[in-house]
Design a protein around this nucleic acid. Structure first.
Ligand code: ZN
Ligand code: ZN
Ligand code: ZN
Ligand code: ZN
Lengths: 168, 168
DNA sequence: GCATAAGGTGTTATAATATAACAATAATTG
DNA sequence: CAATTATTGTTATATTATAACACCTTATGC
């Protein structure tokens, strides 16, 4: 099982997350011979600011603040489209939000564990999950092409807080 | 494995799907002591017209046509909210669309197989899937509360058409 | 039955998310 | 440097969803 859950759910050196993501992005763009322009890189950086998915209009605001001039929606959506196409980010449909992918160009599950409390989203790539879903598809003669899997609940930290006994 | 895939992907007596859905709905409403008003029932019927998810504004149009007077979005969304709360329908986030649930008040997976070609969506409830996802969550100490699982691809019919050899 | 409360609907306005279309600019290629 | 291609800016608009408040209907207690 490949996952960034440990990182997401614990204090960690997040600068490493960011720089790793950026160097992966640069490598991938070089490999694919496409351009990681300033805007695209900035949007990617913004998405990697935290492990919480961001909406397009949150990105718009933050982008505008960063470059100190107004930004129109298409600017954001184009950058998102580019990053999605390269697999550098994912869209989380039920949140209408976007998040950096911790392990792009791996075959992976598009499986997210999303905390209803703090909003963090950890990604999991699990062969057993993929295999089982493939199997479910096969049984119905369904030709599986892609998937979007979202688990909602409480991350370890928020679980602890919620479950806390209370001395009353 | 509980699924309506066979029905969805083959010609079948769809009237039975509809009437079964409606009687389930009536029973559930009676049991819960809530009212299946005309609008709510109509929306449910419209969602059961086919095995393809419908968007709220498609429903709006069809509803307006049926009752022969204009309908405002809140009317539709209120009916949808009611039906969702009872578990009689599901929302498919990546399509912004809604579909009738073939086996409500069962513990189930919220797992859909959605055809990219013809738009049909079959639902699957599979204990093995649920168990595995629970297990994945446990491993990360994530408290699983709900899930949304969407598989995209080609239904059996559309697979055959696509894969057809071609005599050229 | 009638008053009351609760639940449901109508209506208007608006929020939030996403895309279309076309002009302008920048980067790449030969 | 001209020609082509990729990228960005700009304006307008489509699509999905909700807020707020007035009005009506149904159930409930007396
Ligand atoms: Zn991090
Ligand atoms: Zn949390
Ligand atoms: Zn049917
Ligand atoms: Zn199909």
């Amino acid at each position: 099982m490949l996952t960034n859950a440990k990182l997401v759910h614990q204090p960690h050196d997040h600068e490493r997350c960011i720089s790793a993501a950026l160097s992966r992005a640069k490598a991938l763009c070089a490999e694919q011979n496409v351009r990681l322009t300033t805007t695209r890189e900035l949007v990617l950086r913004l998405l990697w600011q935290s492990h919480q998915p961001l909406g397009a209009y949150q990105l718009q605001d933050q982008l505008a603040e960063h470059i100190n001039k107004p930004v129109a929606p298409p600017t954001v959506y184009r950058a998102l489209e580019f990053l999605l196409r390269l697999g550098l980010i994912h869209r989380i449909p039920s949140l209408n939000a976007y998040i950096g992918c911790p392990f792009p160009n791996n075959e992976h599950s598009n499986l997210f564990m999303i905390c209803n409390q703090c909003g963090t989203a950890a990604e999991v790539a699990d062969k057993a999950v993929n295999k089982l879903l493939q199997c479910v598809s096969d049984r119905s003669h369904f030709t599986l092409q892609s998937q979007s899997l979202e688990l909602f609940g409480l991350c370890p930290q928020c679980s602890n807080i919620t479950e806390a006994p209370g001395y009353d």
